[in-house]
Design a protein around this nucleic acid. Structure first.
Length: 434
RNA sequence: GCGGAUGUAGCUCAGUUGGCAGAGCACCUGGUUGUGGCCCAGGGGGUCGUGGGUUCAACCCCCAUCAUUCGCCCCA
């Protein structure tokens, strides 16, 4: 029998990733909750039509990256490739728009895209998602960016850059598109890379986003969308930027920043890290005023963002390398009767706030000490023949201190003192407890 | 979908021109050490990713395939 393995691009999350994910979710609830956002959980499966209509039939995501299959009655279902469509569907279907003017929702969970896996990109990946539905005001845009930054700060992440741009609206973007196309066509198009020559006709805005140095140089003097948006869009964007200034948020105006999904308009932003390779984009979002109506809902504006949890986990992991928490104790069993006693003793220690484990089997002391050492335990509790006969436990300080003998009956008191020490030690530092 | 790299012990990886399968860490046993984590000696562990081919002989060369990984495309 050959052993089974995970599906390509689907990962089992062990420590420390599993803990990092939990911490991100906790931080999200705290920070987003502070801005009045409520948690929403939508299904992983939706009718395929939802994504076709929202993301855009012509996009790569819909054309070749979705997990799509018929159910038992032949209806086409798709495992969600992103979160916004499902949230908007739920928003419309629940009639939430009729009960409140502005709805603020956040969500997190697995998404699915059939892509070639690489660093920070899985076929099953996870996103944190925030949507502010019903607000057209530029203050909503600013607050969403501020909230995203507050969330990343809460996680202790540094060295992140915010890129900002406006994509114009349905009124002014077509005109800019023409201006841009005219400019690009006037260049020596043969010098563009293969992809850009294709983009020229399919999606000229994407040419600005090309990473090939040659293409970048050629589009250096391309007309900037910010100089071509209509008065309303300009005013909207100016307000967003001015408010970010007052809050001291560092950002870069990036005229090349465009979005992959069709429904974005006006403000668009991205948070980038320079330290995780090619997949440096950690979060991205923007305004999508037309989407809700496009999906059969009311004419309601909205703005939101999605945050890639795998990429955040990469950043957190490299930032916290070597900061693993130490267990407080390890109980070494040196006698066959010891494991029984160890279970009870460990419970007494944990009841007083300590963290640690025991050896289930009795083995030689040398191996036990090695085990305690590799675990990084602060104290190694020895249960040998002598200790069992005298109803005591030998407690050895693994950090070079001495060793004391403690009656089993008073182990709880000892643990209480050690726990108090630990609390004291954690007070000044900002490190996570446990 | 396209391109590069890598698959050898539980883990990290060496392996010369094609000539008996290796090290470190981990694990087990023994010795030593003041109650011991260091040190010393020994031991268990391998379909060399898989399937073909070339050869007297393949971890090594060739073909195929699977997997992992870094990029491209696309996206968070």
């Amino acid at each position: 029998m050959t052993a089974l393995q995970t599906i390509k691009g689907f990962a089992d999350l062990f420590e420390p990733e599993s803990t990092l994910f939990t911490r991100m979710e906790d931080a999200a609830r705290r920070v987003f909750g502070a801005y009045g956002y409520k948690e929403l959980r939508t299904p992983i499966l939706e009718f395929t039509e939802l994504f076709a209509r929202s993301i855009g039939t012509e996009t790569d995501v819909v054309q070749k990256e979705m997990y799509t299959f018929p159910d038992r009655k032949g209806r086409s279902l798709t495992m969600r490739p992103e979160a916004t469509a499902g949230i908007v569907r739920a928003y419309i279907e629940s009639g939430l728009h009729g009960r409140e003017n502005v709805s603020k929702l956040f969500s997190f969970g697995p998404m699915f895209r059939y892509e070639r896996p690489q660093k920070g990109r899985m076929r099953q990946f996870h996103q944190l998602d925030c949507e502010c539905l019903g607000a057209h005001e530029p203050q909503a845009d600013t607050e969403v960016v501020l909230m995203l930054m507050a969330f990343l700060r809460e996680l202790g992440l540094k060295d992140l850059a915010v890129d900002l741009n406006s994509l114009g609206c349905r009124e002014c973007r077509p005109a800019y598109k023409e201006t841009l196309t005219a400019f690009l066509s006037s260049l020596d198009t043969g010098q563009f890379c293969e992809d850009c020559r294709r983009r020229l006709s399919t999606n000229p805005l994407r040419v600005l986003d090309c990473k090939v140095p040659g293409c970048k140089a050629m589009t250096e003097n391309a007309p900037r969308i910010l100089d071509h948006v209509c008065g309303d869009c300009k005013e909207h964007f100016d307000t967003v930027v001015r408010l970010l200034d007052t809050q001291g948020v560092p950002y870069t105006l990036n005229p090349r920043l465009v979005r992959g999904l069709d429904y974005y308009v006006r403000t668009t932003f991205e948070v980038v890290s320079t330290s995780i390779g090619a997949q440096g984009s950690v979060a991205g979002g923007g305004r999508y005023d037309g989407l809700i109506a496009q999906l059969g809902g009311p004419e309601v504006p909205a703005i939101g963002f999605a945050c890639g949890m795998e990429r955040l986990a990469l950043l957190l992991a490299q930032q916290e390398h070597g900061n693993e928490a130490r267990p407080d104790f390890y109980i070494a069993c040196l006698d066959e009767r010891a494991p029984d006693v160890a279970v009870v003793a460990a419970e007494a220690l944990r009841a007083n706030g300590l963290v640690g484990e025991i050896s289930f089997t009795a083995k030689g002391l040398k191996g036990q000490m090695r085990r305690a050492s590799t675990l990084g335990a602060r104290y190694c509790l020895l249960l040998g023949e002598n200790e069992l006969n005298t109803q005591t436990v030998a407690v050895k300080n693994m950090d070079g201190g001495g060793q004391v003998s403690i009656p089993l009956a008073t182990l709880g008191d000892w643990a209480e003192i050690r726990h108090a020490d630990k609390e004291q030690a954690h007070r000044p530092g900002a490190g996570p407890a446990i």
